[in-house]
Design a binder for these strands. Structure first.
Length: 403
DNA sequence: CGAGATTCATGTGAAGTATACCTTTAGGCTTAA
DNA sequence: AAGCCTAAAGGTATACTTCACATGAATCTCGTA
């Protein structure tokens, strides 16, 4: 036993793939951001007034996932902080918040609570009127004279739960603040997000806009090469690996984050194989692994009723092998499942909403169809491959066996 | 035969309810002077 | 009398339920050719 472990750790120690893995991790901010100079310049010049202690225009960034929005914004943020750090004349705070985080920042209340926490305050998870949380937020911000830059990432994800009044209020907070000034930077993946917004909100939230176009395959290759040189030891990358990575990512609307993840995971897999090189095979494996991990992660963190519903969908589609499932079938199966396990049964209304949420998560595909006299219903298909379905079923099954 | 009415099974929005938790307040008890 | 604890009152966000109306195309109806 001891020898086995020694073997594992020893071979891990003599890492022959990575030189510096950090540069491939998604939170890493490189010193150079290729092909985004124009966007960074724009952002910087819009936000530059903060350096004189003036409030800049509210700003809105949009582009698809992995086009460097967050990265560029964080780069600009760091530069701004570098220049204001230690300046006694005014204080600059830049707070970044990702609104997509389920159960953390996906409602008005929770976003405010999260912001307060970041500013060093405390707020209970429930029980307070939102208005009260709002005014606490104002209090805590307005305690001392400062300039606040609020970066709300992926606000489009929450637009259904957040009234546009909230966004409007945020952008107009300044009138309620005496010492502090605030500026809102919104980041959105959805290019049509602004169109669905109340015109008042739109005009005040996006006084300025910066668009991030997707990278093309050539640009992706350059990005990958640059980072790979830093991350990997010499010669560990087999020919064609980089171009395959970028091809994969280009297929996904030029998602650079995806490409980098691919490369990193492929490296990890190669390391685990004790290979001397990262081969094309590793890229394929990495592609599966990433997809799988991402989905399984989401499923695992879902509450039990959601797991029951998902389990019903999986079991039903396996058992009957009818690929398009319909709402009614699923609900019946789900209800039996609950009864068998002595669980409370949710209403069909609610289950319908849960199914819709799974659709949003990309685990299933849902389409409302009308079968004429046969009624109207959702047509449901699993959107994940066999391999993942197996695992997903295990997860949800585990949940089930507890009862 | 074809236009319009009907129908089915669920979609969907709004309003209501249950739960878990928060603050405030008033009373009761303890304590120290 | 001041200070502290407790419990009740009054209030909220969130997840879920209830109620009522909306949908959209296959099917039916019925007047017409």
């Amino acid at each position: 036993m001891g020898k086995e472990i020694d073997k594992i750790f020893d071979s891990f120690g003599q890492n022959n793939i990575f030189k510096d893995k950090v540069v491939l991790q998604s939170n890493h901010i490189p010193s150079e951001i290729p092909h985004r100079t124009e966007q960074i310049k724009q952002t910087a010049s819009i936000l530059a007034p903060v350096l004189r202690g003036e409030r800049p225009s509210n700003l809105f960034l949009y582009g698809k996932t992995g086009t460097g929005k967050t990265l560029s914004m964080q780069y600009v943020r760091d530069e701004l902080l570098k220049r204001t750090d230690g300046n006694p004349n005014f204080k600059l705070r830049i707070e970044y918040l990702n609104c997509k985080l389920k159960k953390v920042a996906d409602t008005e209340y929770r976003i405010l609570a999260e912001l307060i926490k970041k500013m060093g305050g405390e707020v209970p998870t429930t029980g307070l009127p939102t208005q009260e949380v709002y005014s606490r937020f104002i209090d805590i911000i307005d305690k001392e004279k400062q300039l606040i830059l609020l970066i709300l990432d992926e606000i489009d994800q929450t637009v259904k739960k957040i009234s546009s009044d909230f966004l409007y209020n945020l952008t107009r907070l300044n009138s309620e603040l005496s010492k502090t000034q605030i500026c809102v930077v919104g980041i959105s993946n959805n290019l049509t997000f602004l169109d669905d917004l109340d015109p008042r909100v739109r005009s005040s939230l996006s006084e300025e806009e910066v668009v991030f176009p997707p990278y093309n395959a050539i640009q992706l290759q350059e990005i990958l090469k640059q980072r790979a040189d830093l991350a990997f030891k010499e010669g560990v990358i087999e020919d064609g690996v980089i171009s395959k990575c970028s091809a994969f990512a280009a297929r996904e609307h030029g998602d650079a984050r995806r490409a980098l993840d691919l490369l990193r995971v492929a490296g990890e897999l190669a390391e685990r194989d004790h290979s001397k090189q990262i081969s094309l095979k590793h890229i394929d494996e990495a592609n599966n692994k990433i997809e799988k991990d991402k989905i399984l992660d989401v499923i695992t963190s879902e509450p039990k009723q959601f797991q029951f519903v998902l389990n019903s969908i999986i079991s039903l589609s396996e058992k009957k092998n009818i690929t398009p499932l319909f709402t009614g079938d699923i609900y019946n199966y789900y209800r039996d499942l609950c009864l068998k396990n002595h669980m409370e049964v949710l209403t069909q209304r609610r289950v319908g909403d849960i199914v819709q949420e799974f659709d949003m998560l990309g685990i299933i595909n849902v389409r409302v169809i009308s079968k004429g006299r046969g009624g109207r219903m959702r047509e449901i298909k699993l959107a994940i491959n066999k391999d993942i379905i197996e695992k997903a079923k295990e997860i949800t099954q585990k949940f089930l066996d507890h009862y």
